[in-house]
Design a protein around this nucleic acid. Structure first.
Length: 575
RNA sequence: GCGUCUGUAGCUCAGCUGGAUAGAGCAACGGACUUCUAAUCCGUAGGCCGCAGGUUCGAAUCCUGCCAGACGCGCCA
């Protein structure tokens, strides 16, 4: 059982019930895992189903529940313990709950929910990884924001994260691009059109190549030149890369996402031979149709391709080289790869190869897959020019937000800044609000929706809370003491119970590599708070009541900001 | 053909390490702004949880089969 510094009712219940049942050999850990939250508040706040205990205790579950009800003293954490059929229901005593949770949030501030379980160990997170010379489109959004959120979440839990942008800056596509540039491009056009011009050339290459397959050979020849260090080819490659990076950087600046390393694929060029040699030495390489492979029949997988017929490398080779390099450089306890679910087999294969090489840290490699983004049911395709640029989406979202502000809150100061925060927040939250694995069909309408379960909803709730605090001139330094018993309305208690869940939700989000757990939680928290907001006036004459409510509002504001922060979203004070 | 993932309200999704009466948002309809920001809140309506078996005291959740969709399966990444 993980002891932590946060109030943990499951632990309290496991402890007390465990003590009662000590002689029957029921483990406290097992009890902890059984405890659940009842579906209806009438059934209490926590419940212990006794079905499974009945096997060990050789007694009917409802009898067990009854006996436990009689043997357990609910005080001080519960006001009642009641057997309801086969369930033992626990009713939380409000005052200790309110006091403990709010006091802890006040004293920890933005650190509430944080832990030190990571112990400063390194976690490498490989995310975003757009391809050079291709536009940064909505398909890259998931990897970018999921990776960023996991980065923040693990840092929050005491790990030291290393964010790596494994740029797609090597490969045959550069040969294609140079071919197209030579035939249909010019320096002026590229200087002027930048990545959009590169994209035009790339698309043109593919349409022309359908008629004239010889172009493909030309492209391969140009890529070979890059690999052989031909100066003209290399300088074009560097130029294209520079242009792309500048464009990517603009998007990262808008998203306020940064990386600790921009080592892309080309970075590993000089590290691949050693890997191939090692695979040979360990007798893992087998020749097959002229290519060098690692056979994985035994593990029910197709073989992992290491070298092509012509001796050149493939992306599995590169990934293995990168993993070895990262292990040596960062001593990670986990390496996360945030890429599309389509690559699941690829990762399974080369993870296995690393294991077969004798590295036990292969088990620390984790693929974090996410679903496919499509456009009107059709795949995104750079080649066909069917994409939505991320920058366009973000800019549209910001413009729309500005229009809403001008309509609803025209006197707001720093409109542009707020519009940016909210517009970007809407897009980012949209990508983080559903389970990673779900495929999504991009729709402008949905991406630009600001009502209901959206980022702006959370930001709006936060801004409202800030507004109350501002009017009251409240800050926690002004007074941390408050009367917990005054927060006795159901609406207020619901909010406190929602706040209580935050640390637990952050932990699950990390364990499951699933930021959407935090997204959904924040929606729930905001919803309970908005209910409270409508029902209970905070600024009232009764000073004790007002003080208690202000503490609650401050706590909600803090958790909303912290939670949004973990998702990589900012929370404006006004909007 | 083989493999992986997905299938829950009209739409988008929670719930899936088995537990009590399957929950939200959007859209629809009806209500709440002289009161801390209505980007809000409250209410109504909406369900063979893809289908069929099985395991179990108990299945949306686990197992098997089938159906539908997405993705993957050696020289792209």
């Amino acid at each position: 059982m993980q002891k932590n510094s946060y109030l943990d009712y499951k632990e309290i219940i496991a402890e007390t019930v465990g003590t009662v049942l000590a002689e029957s050999g029921v483990e406290k850990e097992a009890l902890y895992a059984l405890i659940e939250y009842p579906p209806d508040e009438k059934l209490g706040d926590l419940a212990l189903p006794c079905f499974q205990l009945s096997k060990v205790l050789r007694k009917a579950p409802n009898l067990i529940a009854e006996e436990l009800e009689n043997k357990i003293d609910p005080a001080p954490y519960f006001e009642a313990v009641k057997a309801t059929g086969p369930y033992l229901n626990f009713y939380v005593a409000p005052v200790p709950l309110v006091k403990d949770v709010l006091a802890k949030i006040i004293t920890s501030g933005s650190k509430y929910g944080a832990r030190s379980v990571g112990g400063g160990q390194n976690i490498v997170i490989d995310f975003s990884a757009p391809n050079i010379a291709k536009p940064f489109h909505v398909g890259h959004l998931c990897s970018t924001v999921i990776g960023n959120a996991l980065y923040k979440i693990f840092e929050f839990l005491g790990y030291n994260c290393v964010g790596i942008n494994h740029l797609g800056d090597w490969g045959t596509q550069f040969g294609k691009l140079i071919t197209a540039y030579k035939k249909w491009g010019s320096a002026e056009a590229v200087e002027k059109g930048l990545i959009k011009e590169l994209m035009r050339l790339y698309v043109k290459f593919h349409t022309e190549a359908e008629q004239d397959p010889a172009l493909e050979d030309e492209a391969r020849a140009w890529f070979r030149k890059i690999e052989n260090g031909d100066e003209e080819a290399l300088s074009l490659w560097r130029w294209f890369k520079e242009i792309s990076l500048e464009e990517f950087q603009r998007v990262y600046d808008i998203l306020e996402i940064s990386f600790d390393s921009m080592a892309g694929e080309s970075f590993y060029n000089d590290k691949i031979d050693a890997v191939v040699n090692e695979l040979k030495e360990k007798e893992l390489l087998v020749e097959s149709d002229g290519a060098a492979i690692v056979n994985l029949d035994e593990y029910g997988m197709p073989p992992c391709l290491i070298l092509k017929k012509d001796g050149s490398t493939l992306y599995a080779t590169r990934d293995i080289a990168a993993a070895l390099y990262r292990k040596k450089t960062y001593q990670f306890v986990k390496a996360l790869y945030v890429t599309g679910a389509a690559q699941s087999l690829h990762f399974k294969q080369w993870f296995k190869v690393v294991e077969l090489m004798g590295y036990d840290w292969a088990k620390e490699l984790v693929h974090i897959p996410f679903g496919l983004v499509s456009l009107k049911g059709e795949k995104l395709s750079t080649r066909k020019g069917r994409v939505v640029l991320l920058e366009d989406l973000l800019k549209t979202a910001i413009e729309k937000t500005l229009a809403i502000i001008n309509e609803k809150n025209p006197s707001l100061l720093q409109k542009e800044e707020v519009a940016q925060t909210v517009g970007v927040g809407a897009v980012v939250f949209g990508a983080l609000s559903v389970n990673r694995i779900k495929d999504v069909t991009f729709s402008w309408e949905e991406a630009l929706s600001f009502e209901g379960e959206t980022g702006p909803y959370l930001q709006y709730t936060h801004a409202r809370a800030c507004s109350i605090l501002r009017k009251a001139g409240y800050s926690p330094d002004a007074g941390v003491t408050f009367a917990p018993e005054r927060l006795n309305e159901p609406a207020a208690l619901k909010v406190v119970k929602a706040l209580y869940l935050f640390p637990e939700k952050v932990l699950s989000a990390a364990n499951e590599f699933e930021p959407s757990i935090i997204s959904r939680y924040l929606i729930e928290l905001a919803h309970t708070f908005n209910g409270f907001y409508h029902e209970c006036q905070v600024l009232v004459d009764d000073q004790d009541l007002q003080q208690a409510r202000l503490v609650l509002v401050w706590a909600v504001k803090t958790i909303l900001a912290t939670g949004l922060g973990l998702l990589g979203i900012k929370a404006p004070e006004q909007m």
